[in-house]
Design a protein around this nucleic acid. Sequence first.
RNA 1: GCCCGGAUGGUGGAAUGGUAGACACGAAGGACUUAAAAUCCUUUGGCUUCACGGCUGUGCGGGUUCAAGUCCCGCUUCGGGUACCA
Length: 918
Amino acid sequence: MEYNFREIEQKWQSFWKNNNTYKTEIDQLKPKYYVLDMFPYPSGAGLHVGHPLGYIASDIFSRYKRLKGFNVLHPMGYDAYGLPAEQYAIQTGQHPAVTTKKNIARYREQLDKIGFCYDWNREIRTCEPDYYRWTQWAFIQMFNHYFNTKLQKAQSIESLVKIFETNGTAEIHTSCTEELNFTAGEWKSKTEKEQQEILLNYRIAYLADLKVNWCSALGTVLANDEVSEGVSVRGGHPVEQRVMRQWSLRVSSYAQRLLDGLNTIEWTESLTETQKNWIGRSEGAEMTFNIKDRDFNFEVFTTRADTIYGVTFMVLAPESELVKQLTTVEQATAVENYVAATKKRTERERIADRRVSGVFSGSYAINPVSGTEIPIWISDYVLAGYGTGAIMAVPAHDSRDYAFAKYFNLPVIALIEGCDVSEESFDAKEGIMMNSGFLNGLTVKEAIQKAKEYISEKGIGRVKVNFRLRDAIFSRQRYWGEPFPVYYKDELPYMLDESKLPLELPEIDKFLPTEKGEPPLGRAQNWETEDHFPLELNTMPGFAGSSAYYLRYMDPKNDKALVSKEANQYWRSVDLYIGGTEHATGHLVYSRFWNKFLFDLGLVCEDEPFKKLVNQGMIQGRSNFVYRIKDTNTFVSLNLKDQYETTAIHVDVNIVSNDVLDTEKFKNWNPEYKNAEFVLEDGKYHCGWAVEKMSKSMYNVVNPDDIVEKYGADTLRLYEMFLGPLEQSKPWDTNGIDGVHRFLKKLWTLFYKEDTLIVNNETPGAEELKILHKTIKKVTFDIENFSYNTSVSAFMICVNELFTLKCSKKQILEPLTILIAPFAPHIAEELYHILGNEDTVCDAVFPICDEEYLKETAVKYPISFNGKVRFMLELPADMSKEDVERIAMANEQTLKYLEGKSPKKVIIVQGKIVNIVL
RNA sequence: GCCCGGAUGGUGGAAUGGUAGACACGAAGGACUUAAAAUCCUUUGGCUUCACGGCUGUGCGGGUUCAAGUCCCGCUUCGGGUACCA
């Protein structure tokens, strides 16, 4: 009987489905394990061969854990809201729900072919009302809470109101949009509207006038992580800064906890670093500078308080409030012109064009330590949004300040002994201080510390921590997203009652903004509450639905809560999360924030949502080229192309095999090539190749369906893992898949010789047991370390060795079958049944390595001289060091290599190597 | 600029400081076959030798060590992230 993968895979896929093999339920008797994939956005293009890489890896781990006796939760769903479906809707009029549904069906079909062990009973879609009512619900909770900075946790807004009523703002510890000051009496005398407006200043979900990233091409604002280098991440459209009244989430208040949490989870170093940088904690000092001849002062933030004696000017951001206050009458026109000019430039232009520019304000500040007068300038290299929007400039030790000083001819005072600032600034935090009064003679590090203490003592400033992390803009002027559970009364936002959830997305006639420029929801009929209050027209951003989906999988059908206490107590958090690095600063920040918020409310029992995270590498494309001789329809094979003048043309990789072109298929591929002629080498047309992004335009997209059709799902699974280390980016190269397929066929031949089952019950010998247990040991270790490429090779070695021994013994083959089941579940299930089992291999027991079988009786010692191996010497494994040395030294080959000299030293590493030093 | 990760045969890639190149692809030769496919066997880093063998070899230059692809220092180079963040 041949290895008929088509029949086998179909048979077991329906068996698993019919038997609910992958249905998961709470089982208090078993330890739980939660394995999660980053759920996909179902795009119209379907899956290419790169997408399943992470899914296969997590599938292997899930199956492995199950075989190890864990109750494994391994769910899948769809991140179904998103821009592409809406853009497509605008172009075609096709409702995004329809497109999305269709795409999901296609994804599911493709996923099913690969034989994943997902519990589809738990499937979720972020665009379904049953799901997004909990996204809306979470938003309401955020609206109803504020962040207590002293306790570092969220607390109810009612409790804040109580504080206002008794003490005003005197002793509050909160995150807020701007610092407000009022007494209890003042609070009580305010109108309802005024109070509500004030509370928005503290709520975790708040509405405020903010400087936002506006993308006119997409017609919406974007969060910081959705913008890169001044253009939108999706689509690459220009983004400009605008002030708009928008919903935001006070993510920044969780900055410290988001940072601290990173130490409690097992993520890769690079991802942890990326998040740390994104959060951007910087410890420094906020210092107050008085203005010369005026009763006015302002604050700057600096991490280099030690350089206070080197401040030769100050700089304000053009958008800063201080500009107005500090501009003198004489400078007014110049400043106005400058501010107007900067306003016109987009973020992108400012990034692209780094020419130094600025204008003098006319005012002078007084150095609070040295007492010198310092001119105050205005320049766009200072950002309004960071720190206080004003800096003290130390040109000697900051390259940006240096460039500015040189351009405007401002003085540069070096503060570190021996540094040369004639050509560039000295930015390093090292050396001995000079020209710095009480700091002279200290190292920079000591000086930073001393300066901070000094300014605190003298009341000049205070130690301050700043974060780069900004709040998340949460409004989108789009249709295809979660509606906000918000209505407006007297222009102020109010939350719908939870009983009104879900607030369903209404139908509209066109997926475009209204004539008045309102978001698309402005087109909806009767978009108002029962009491005729208008509902919010914005929708939530893409990351809303993905922020708590891992919790919903624990209890997906619950209509009373996002997740029940019981389910959350049992499944707790994700033990293993697999996905790409592209979510490092978006989803992985937002969902950690979201989870921490729910944790503060006592609704989830773990502070961090994802315990361990593994990033699979990106699968790049591998393109093939043909070479057309100029002005002809003749194509020349790769190694002959230099004899002609040719143009390289992308050719569909699916009509190329091992870089050899199927010339007949090529002629049919494109009418243009119908009469193509070829200059061959050895009768073959060899194509060139290059690694590029996998995309339609490069003709290098490989569809997993085609691989499954040709080789089967098990071959696809094994081959994707065999390609290389999971975390490494690598090109997809179908060359080589034959080797993996051959391996499965070879495994099959251990069971069948032609049509006869040749498995027997003979007792295995020491050698066979050693092969088996060596493989168990290696594969177990590799799975635990996500080194799947080497486990595949371990399987190959094992089967090759058993094949050489002609071993078809059940006692060897059965454990091997279980061992390989996580990787190649279909063939494993078939073989497991062939061996006489009736239940599924998924519930077998993972074999355990018995070290007894691995014991070697003899060791082949490499005998090396000065580190160079010269020959091998087989000796008993338990032979003592002394005996090994004695025998090695007496060996006649040793004598030959000694050339009569006596060795200086002999190193024996027992069981490993002998090194003779001459 | 800063941070992180790489660089090993024709190719993908293996190697707790201890025989570099496992495993696989490709290639070459052979067996079976009328032929092809499939399968099986042999060879396969480079140079050198009839051969035994020898020399050389993990991006470059140093170093530590009995022993370095692996550890340390300094470069080159390719990816990824991030940025007038004070």
